[in-house]
């Protein structure tokens, strides 16, 4: 039997819609057991891996998964060597700069401290402005950095802006907008192009 087509799905808020996308393409899947890391479709032609969104690009690049779904923010942040096949349209967010609503001077200055999970995107953004800022890498609850004064600004993904508002922060500039995208491994793309073609349109 042909080996199954392996698909990497992002854990978290993009998961349901990502799986729905493949269901719409005719993949039949029973309920996914909770805590499952791997599951198959009914025909056993597809194997799904549930991955952390930031790991999806790693798996796709190495060809351990043939296709994967994650936000374009992760592609922009890590610049992986793979093919971005399609904008899936859901999971809208924007990567934005935000700060304490009470901060008096909301312009950017050399030496500003900026806390973020998105170190590369942040560096690129400020480099383009010709500004040298100190970037502090964080792994979660980035808002706290601006609230507590760990940093002057934060750069983070914002969907509605509700969390920011509740925490007394305000968005000052958008760096880029992002939605979920379908990614394809380069070797799979070229050797299995007839399969890839089915996911276009």
């Amino acid at each position: 039997m042909e080996r199954p087509i392996t698909i990497g799905l992002p854990k978290g808020y993009l998961f349901d819609e990502s799986l729905d996308f493949f269901k719409k393409q005719g993949v039949e899947v029973d309920d996914v057991p909770s805590r499952a890391l791997i599951f198959h479709d009914k025909s056993m032609k597809f194997r799904f891996l549930i991955l952390r969104p930031t790991d999806v690009t790693v798996y796709v690049q190495n060809g351990v998964v043939d296709m994967g779904v994650c936000g374009m923010d992760i592609v922009r942040e890590t610049k992986p060597d793979l093919i971005v096949l399609k904008d899936l349209g859901f999971g809208y967010c924007r990567l934005s700069v935000a700060t304490d609503v009470n901060k008096k001077d909301k312009t950017f200055n050399n030496g500003d401290k900026v806390a973020t999970k998105f170190v590369n995107s942040t560096k690129e953004f400020f480099d383009k402005k010709g500004l040298k800022v100190d970037i502090i890498k964080l792994y979660g609850s980035v808002e706290l950095a601006a609230i507590t004064g760990l940093s002057d600004y934060i750069v983070d993904l914002i969907a509605t802006g509700k969390t920011l508002k509740e925490n007394g922060l305000v968005e000052t500039q958008t760096i880029y907008e992002t939605t979920a995208h379908l990614l394809v491994n380069r070797v799979f793309y070229s050797l299995r192009n007839e399969i890839v073609q089915q996911y276009i349109g």
């Binding site: 793979l82 093919i83 971005v84 096949l85 399609k86 192009n193 890839v196 073609q197 276009i200």
Partner: peptide
């Protein structure tokens, strides 16, 4: 070059 084919009107010919 960046292989962002989502920005193309159609996929490049291959075959």
């Amino acid at each position: 070059v960046s292989r962002e084919y989502n920005k193309l009107d159609k996929l490049p010919a291959l075959g």
